[in-house]
Amino acid sequence: MGRVEALFTAPADGEPMRAHETVDVVDGGIRGDRYLLGTGHYAPFDVCEVTFVASEGLEFVRDEYDIDLSDGRHRRNVVTRDVDLRALLETTFRVGDAVFRGTRPRPPCAHVGRVAGEEGVARALKEGRGGICADVVDPGSVTVGDDVAVVEAAPRDVGRDIAARLRETRE
């Protein structure tokens, strides 16, 4: 389906994101990341255990808005390549040794722009480029270059497929 292009964590709100080759995913998030530690900007009220963003969206932001966020200023943990992140919502998916469940979109906010230190970041990340949130289902390690693969499709998608097949057999 796609792969991991970059990995980031930050120990606390407003701290620069740190790039990693490998991260340890544990129950509740990524070891050493601000939201697992309870030190994120929105903790404890609006926490994503792990955040994902598409590299293609970041490239669009760079090309269209002249804002390069490749250093982690996008404030997301996992940067993917060739992955339709919206398709991972409500699905169970594997990345490296870890398994996740896509929970909701992660739209950008003004805080991202303030921390990035650049005007227009939140606006540039809108329209689905802000990424998604995911919960940890099974802990494990994730490494740059690991594949992203669906383990279990979204229940609503499965239901629609079954209904479509039933309609076809009646016709």
Rank of each mutant, 00 (worst) to 15 (best):
76 R>V: 11
158 V>A: 12
162 I>M: 10
20 H>C: 10
1 M>C: 02
68 D>V: 00
97 D>W: 00
69 L>T: 02
1 M>T: 05
118 E>C: 02
109 C>N: 09
22 T>H: 04
83 V>W: 13
160 R>M: 13
114 R>Y: 13
81 R>D: 08
49 E>S: 13
98 A>S: 12
121 V>G: 04
8 F>A: 06
105 P>L: 13
134 A>Y: 05
18 R>P: 00
85 L>I: 12
105 P>D: 13
25 V>H: 14
9 T>G: 05
62 R>N: 01
156 R>W: 08
46 D>S: 13
154 A>C: 08
141 S>G: 12
168 E>C: 00
12 A>N: 10
163 A>C: 02
118 E>L: 07
48 C>V: 05
151 V>H: 07
84 D>K: 01
95 V>G: 06
47 V>N: 09
101 R>P: 00
92 T>G: 03
98 A>D: 07
163 A>R: 04
124 A>D: 10
56 E>H: 09
38 G>S: 07
135 D>S: 12
53 V>Y: 04
46 D>V: 00
38 G>F: 02
92 T>D: 14
134 A>G: 06
86 R>T: 12
156 R>T: 07
73 R>L: 14
111 H>N: 13
136 V>E: 13
75 R>G: 03
44 P>I: 05
3 R>G: 11
109 C>Y: 01
113 G>W: 05
44 P>S: 04
167 R>S: 09
79 V>G: 07
40 G>E: 05
23 V>W: 03
165 R>W: 05
132 I>M: 12
170 R>G: 05
74 H>P: 07
163 A>T: 08
163 A>N: 02
112 V>P: 04
114 R>D: 15
104 R>M: 14
2 G>Q: 11
114 R>A: 14
62 R>Q: 13
96 G>M: 05
131 G>P: 12
66 D>Y: 02
2 G>E: 03
162 I>H: 05
24 D>S: 11
106 R>H: 15
103 T>N: 00
131 G>W: 13
34 R>L: 10
111 H>G: 01
95 V>E: 02
37 L>E: 14
142 V>G: 11
166 L>S: 03
115 V>C: 14
45 F>C: 00
149 A>I: 09
75 R>S: 09
90 E>T: 03
57 G>D: 15
73 R>V: 01
78 V>T: 06
162 I>F: 01
144 V>T: 15
115 V>Q: 12
134 A>V: 03
79 V>N: 10
10 A>I: 00
64 E>M: 10
3 R>I: 06
25 V>S: 10
28 G>T: 10
131 G>Y: 08
152 E>L: 04
53 V>S: 06
105 P>I: 10
54 A>Q: 09
11 P>S: 13
74 H>A: 13
17 M>A: 15
27 D>Q: 15
120 G>Y: 03
81 R>W: 02
93 F>H: 11
4 V>L: 11
150 V>D: 09
141 S>A: 12
16 P>N: 09
14 G>F: 03
93 F>S: 06
85 L>S: 11
152 E>K: 11
147 D>K: 00
89 L>G: 07
30 I>G: 04
64 E>C: 05
138 D>F: 07
5 E>W: 02
153 A>N: 11
162 I>Y: 03
160 R>T: 11
109 C>E: 06
54 A>C: 05
95 V>F: 08
142 V>N: 07
69 L>G: 06
151 V>S: 11
41 H>N: 09
